[in-house]
Structure formats: C-alpha cells, structure tokens
Design a protein around this nucleic acid. Structure first.
Length: 127
RNA sequence: GUAGCAGGCCGCUCUAUCGUUCUGAUUUGAUCAGAGAGGAAAGUCCGGACACCAUAGGAUAUCAUAGCGGUUAACGACCGUCGGUUCGCUUUCGCGAAAGCGAGAUCGAAUUAGGACCAGUGCAACAGAAAGGAUGUACAGGUAAUGCUGUAGUGAAAUCAGGUAAACUCUAUGUGGUGAAAUGUCGCGUAAAUCAGAGCUUGAGUGUGAUCCGCACGAUUCUGAAGGGUAGGCAGUUCGAGACCGUGAGUAAUUGCGGUUCUAGAUAAAUGAUAGAGGUUCUCGUUAUUACGGGAAUACAGGAUCCGGCUUAUAGGCCUGCUUUUUUA
RNA sequence: UGUCCCAUGGUGUAAUGGUAACACUACGGUUUUUGGUACCGUCAUUCAAGGUUCGAGUCCUUGUGGGACAA
C-alpha cells in the first residue's frame, strides 16, 4: 500500500468544482468541513483543498494549512470507503482563523472519514 | 570595553523515512537521477521591456515634473553640488553686577516637492486704527499746512517691487490608449435564427476609453431586447538592460574590457510531515574560572509575463565610520 | 493578475484652510404622583504617521482597514 498523492488524485476543472459546491453534501467537525459528491463509474477519489482568505489573510498561512491538509489526507486516504461502481469528489475546507498543527488536523479528518464510511451509499449518484 | 547614531551585508545547518512540481533517462508497471521561492517574492507609489489598437498624425484639454550638473533603456529613482531649515561644538559682537539673553561667523550632522506673486484673479480667523484702492491711536520730532518722520502697541505678516502657487494660474519640459484575463493559434459547441429601432453611398455607424479635426473601413450593416453556446490545449513563459570574478575610467551614481556560468515555471496552483543531531541568543542550577546540565526562543514572510527603483514588515548576528564615557600603558 | 473608490460621536450625514455642526440612540438631570412627551447637559486623538501653512477634518505623501469592478 503506497501513500502517494499525485495529479491523478486531484480534483481539477471549474465545472467539476462548481457542481460539487452546488449539489454536494457536507460534514463538519470543528474547524474542518468536507464537501463530497458521489460520482458514477469506477475511478480514483478526486480530492482538493481550500482555505478561504476570509479566515487567514496571509498567503504563507493559507499555504501552510493546505500543506497540512494534503499531508493528512495522503496518510489516511486508504480509510476512505471504496466501491466498484462509484467514486467521490472531495473538497476539504478549513474554516477558522487559528493556525492548526498536524495532530489536530489528523484527528478532525479521521472523525469525518469515519462518519462518511458509516453512511449507506443509498443516495443517488451523478454521472 | 560601554552606550548611541549613520551606512552596508547575512538572515539557521545536517541526516533518515514518507511524499510533492518540473526536466531527463530506462521503458509502459513504474523506477532512477537532477533541479525547485525572497530581501522584501508584499504594497502597487513611479519608470520601462513586450503585445495589440493607423508602426498613433495635428490641435486643445488632462496629468506629471521643477535650483544647477551628471548617471540610466527609462523615471517622480540614484549621484555630485549650490541654496533653505533645524541641532551641536568653537568663537566674535551687543545688553547685563552675575546667571543668562540676543545677533553673526567657521566647522560638523540631520533634513529639504527648491521655477514664477514687477501677467491676472483670489485668500489672510482672532487681535489690531488699519490686512492691500489703505488708514490713523498715544508720545516725540518736524512743517506754511497735512500720517510728513520715528518709536510704542496688535499680529505669522504693517508699505516693503509685502506674504501665500502641497490657492487658481503662468512659464518650461514631458505625456495617445489598453494590459498576459494583452496577443497568436488549435480544438469543442451554438442561432448566418427571433423581436424592436436606425440606415443602405446625398453615409447609419465602426476602428480603445477626454474632445475636435484628419485618416481608414463601411451594407452578408449598426444599436437595443430577450435568449443559445463555450469558458479546454499549446505558444506568449522564462537567456535576461542576467549573475559572479578580475581589471581600467570616473569624486560618485555608473560604465568599458576580459573570463566563468545557466539558476523555479505551477495553473483549485509544486518546497511539506515525522524523528534525530548540531549552531546562535536569552535564562536557571552546579562550579574558583574553563566547563557541564535543564528550559525557552530561532523573525518578516511564498513566485504567477519580466526587469529598474521607491515604500512598508523583519528574531538574531556580522562589518565600516563618527560621537559619548571608562580603564590601562 | 490588474483597475478604482471610501473612512468624521454608538448609527446616519454636514462643515469655503480659521471655535468640528445636525438628527436619532445611550447615559445623567429638570418638569410629572409614576411613565411618556417636552427642556437642559454629557459622549470626537475627524483611520494612523509624517509634511506644506501663522493655522489642516479639508491640501500633499506614505501606510492601515473596508468595499467595488474587469472574460
């Protein structure tokens, strides 16, 4: 089992992201919010990370948080639920004006993934 | 040695594991190798390069600059110099019993958006008789007579070719506009459709954005309404007014010549995580010092077309010069 | 990435370079048996720092914060 996070696992394209925000569901734990949308067809999970300028003004701090999020997801990606006929589009959003550390981010992400796994995949998928 | 001021420079290092963007190899499963943020990358306050619009032409307006000389691709930047202002040392003169006060000069430091108010217009609160076509209080002087003259008094400024242009303005010089979402090209897709108005060579309008002229285009046209489609790839894009070293010119900014070197290129956007070791600074304890051990801190901040400046943020450290004070010889 | 605008009591707005004004709110007081109304008073480092000027909310420069726009 490898812990890579290359370009093939990133969510790209303006259209895909717009539909994710328009139709996606969300889970929130503390300062971390996950937007997710199940998609038809077997593929790798596509993920992306966002930190609004509203909470952290400096580019250095926003980059720092995104790097921590990316690192946490890289190490926990295999806990995500896997299905044969669908995959997820994901967007992690950090919503706080405090700079977190790695441990804190990891705990939040673990809780969210656990909650996502519990949910039945009965809701409809988007092609 | 201590403290302060000014200028310049550096701005944490190494190892292991797991990852990340680009490039190159081996080759289609991936693996290996190399490279990978700053002095401000920031603010966007100026100036350019580059691209397009007539390789942008004339006039006016607008805006900017403002002693003199130089540097530069260019500038509102930089260098030199003259002047102004402030401060300090020394010193001269005047007043005074002294303390001290006032005025000037040399030297040093800091600072300075520094053309023109004998072209015109405007402005000056309060105080004051009077604030720009002047007017007149008290005392003294003077006259044939009169604010005619001086002093006092008010004020930032009181007759002085007055002050004020970071007041309008004038003078000189410069200034076309837009801005990588520029621009070119490939691909996908739609509606050369509908409605209303204008116009069809006697000209509606368009061509980049202050106006007019001029120039070019112009009927398969132009404007508006409602609506439909796309919003992807590549080039531009990183070799350049480049960086470093030596040497010549110049007071300096800067520049000539020679040599060496290639140093980010992402696009929901690459530098991170974890563990360990070591620097540096501060601090506590043990110790006669050296030293040893514990704890804390290690800044400001992240490229997005690229350069030259300016401004702002910055833990800690180094170098140079000047001043203050202390100790030793 | 680029362009533009704004900032004055708690709130909304004024002010030609010359004592920062008005309305509402809040607080205190007077009137009233009490409350309301009415009247009186209080509440400003004009976003910050420099500069020009005798004098700056106003003019100039640089920052800070907020907002808008560009296919």
């Amino acid at each position: 089992m490898r812990f890579t996070l290359g370009k093939d696992k990133k969510l790209k394209g303006k259209k895909a992201i717009e539909t994710l925000f328009a139709q996606g569901l969300s889970i929130r734990k503390g300062a971390l919010r996950l937007k997710y949308l199940p998609i038809d067809g077997k593929d790798l999970h596509k993920t992306s990370f966002s930190v609004p300028k509203r909470f952290l003004k400096l580019a250095v701090h926003r980059n720092r948080v995104k790097r921590l999020l990316r690192e946490s997801y890289r190490l926990q990606q295999h806990h995500m639920p896997v299905s044969d006929n669908s995959h997820y589009h994901l967007m992690w959003v950090y919503q706080s004006n405090k700079l977190p550390d790695q441990e804190h981010i990891t705990q939040l992400m673990q809780a969210i993934i656990k909650q996502l796994s519990k949910k039945p995949e009965s809701h409809k998928t988007v092609s």
